[in-house]
């Protein structure tokens, strides 16, 4: 049984037939081989736009995503959606854009958390994606630049990356994607040549600094 079955009718909120077929398509996609090098891998950098929720907390308003495919950031390989009145469609389309690629965020506790909540609320379940958090990885990859965890702006500044509009989920994802390219370059130098190795390193407390 894969995770999709939990999204199917009976196991959660009702899912429209069209959406269900989308989700089936996504589930049928081949899983990428995470032991290939970064430069043979498609990563998807995901970012959220949120607003305050009634009763406290943040509500997901929009998502933006930019792929880094084989090391390159191509403008055609990008996605954005507002949740608006069809949040389930937006989340399913995001999932289809990610297409089982390793997902990259800055500040996973917030972004990954917000996204997973939205998947669960709208699609009935949390898809089992691989998540990389640059907030955690960057200080270990570039300890000489900034020691310890820092705000995203500090890292963007350290590499001269312009953040064109921080209220726009897509443009912010673009900035994070450029930061991810920086991360991949150093990871490769450090012998962390594949997404699998990077994921393992992220979960190894010994390797991590400042977390």
């Amino acid at each position: 049984m894969n995770w999709l079955s939990r999204l199917l009718p009976g196991s959660g909120p009702a899912v429209a037939p069209a959406l269900r077929s989308t989700l089936e398509d996504i589930a049928a996609l081949p899983a990428p081989d995470l032991s290939r090098s970064h430069y043979e891998t498609r990563y998807v950098v995901v970012n959220t736009e949120t607003g305050p929720m009634e009763g406290g907390g943040q509500r997901l308003l929009a998502v933006g995503a930019v792929a880094i495919n084989k090391g390159l950031l191509h403008p055609g390989d990008a996605f954005q959606a507002r949740l608006g009145s069809a949040p389930a469609d937006a989340m399913a389309n995001l999932l289809r854009f990610i297409a089982k690629a390793p997902a990259v965020v800055y500040n996973a506790p917030f972004n990954q958390g917000t996204l997973e909540r939205a998947f669960e609320n709208n699609l009935g379940s949390i898809p089992p994606l691989e998540w990389l958090d640059l907030m955690v990885l960057m200080p270990s990859l570039y300890p000489e630049r900034i020691a310890g965890q820092a705000r995203m702006d500090a890292w963007l500044g350290a590499f001269g990356i312009e953040r064109l509009d921080h209220r726009d989920a897509l443009l912010e994802a673009l900035a994070v994607a450029q930061l991810h390219q920086v991360a991949l370059a150093r990871a490769k130098q450090q012998g962390l040549g594949s997404p699998r190795e990077l994921l393992d390193a992220q979960s190894s407390r010994k390797w991590l600094r400042g977390s």
Partner: peptide, 14 residues
């Protein structure tokens, strides 16, 4: 899929 994202990024190039 969604071309508005591509358009936004292309605009940054232009």
């Amino acid at each position: 899929m969604d071309n508005s994202a591509a358009d936004t990024l292309i605009r940054t190039h232009l």
